[in-house]
Simulated scan of single mutants.
Amino acid sequence: MKQYIGITILAMFILSGCQSISDEELEALHARAAKAEQLQAENEKLKQSKASLQQSVAELNKQLEQEVTAKQVLIEQNEQTGVIKVTLQQDILFSSGSFKIDQAGAADILKKVIESIDNNDGKVMLRIVGHTDNLPVAKKWRNQFSDNWDLSARRAGEVARYLTWGLGFPRENITVAGRADVEPVASNDTPEGRAKNRRIELFIEK
């Protein structure tokens, strides 16, 4: 790499038609070469991260094939950044109005997600985002949740707690957010649309 940069600098010097070069010009050339080297290293790192995440996508689809087929889970990957988004419908994680993980099925699904992630280097970051429909929190639950902001954040936090305490995922690699009903993916005018909006999204990146 250094030899390549040196040749590049020399070529730039020759092509400029100069017989001599000042210290300031030489310093500027070195700075440009260092910047090019940094950008190449960053691009290589991005390629490696995207390749690792692509392997995780393949493993996620394999492990969660049944849930994906049943449209309980949606797995997507951003082509530019490589970031994976796993969307989990509320019904497979929580009972209605509750923020407690449903141990019957949710625990197994979350375990499959973590096992599918290549985190051998400890650099995988998880962003957990909770979403609700636009219906107000039922009266019987208002002693626990003041509104949908509270409910969505509590559910996202519960997933984070299970991933860290139950499955040992590093706490420092997780962030949590509650988005209430402000980012719907379907119309809230129908029961089917509201069911799609009640969800947890896991963003997986390196």
Rank of each mutant, 00 (worst) to 15 (best):
D121V: 01
K206G: 03
L151V: 09
S49D: 13
K50A: 06
S96E: 14
L151Q: 13
F169A: 04
D147T: 00
K2Y: 03
A138D: 13
F203P: 03
I92T: 06
I174V: 14
A107D: 08
R127A: 13
A156Y: 06
E44A: 08
K206M: 01
E79N: 14
M1S: 13
F99L: 03
V73N: 09
E25V: 02
M12N: 14
P136C: 01
A106L: 04
S56V: 09
V68A: 06
V159T: 04
H131I: 04
L74I: 09
N61D: 10
K196C: 06
E205N: 07
R32C: 03
I128T: 07
G130K: 02
E183A: 12
G17H: 08
M1Y: 09
D189A: 15
R194I: 11
K62P: 00
L163C: 07
E27W: 01
T190G: 09
F169N: 05
K62T: 10
Q54T: 13
D91M: 10
L135C: 06
R155N: 08
I128M: 09
R142N: 09
A107P: 01
Q144N: 10
S16E: 10
L167E: 12
Y4Q: 12
E67T: 07
C18W: 08
Q66I: 11
E183R: 12
G82H: 00
K196P: 05
T81V: 01
F99H: 13
L126M: 10
K100V: 12
V83I: 10
N173A: 14
E192F: 06
Q55G: 15
N134P: 02
Q3V: 08
K112L: 07
K2F: 11
R179P: 00
L46P: 00
E44L: 11
K45F: 02
L202R: 04
V129G: 01
I117V: 15
N78G: 01
E115Q: 15
N134R: 00
Y4K: 11
G193Q: 11
L64D: 08
F145Q: 04
A28R: 13
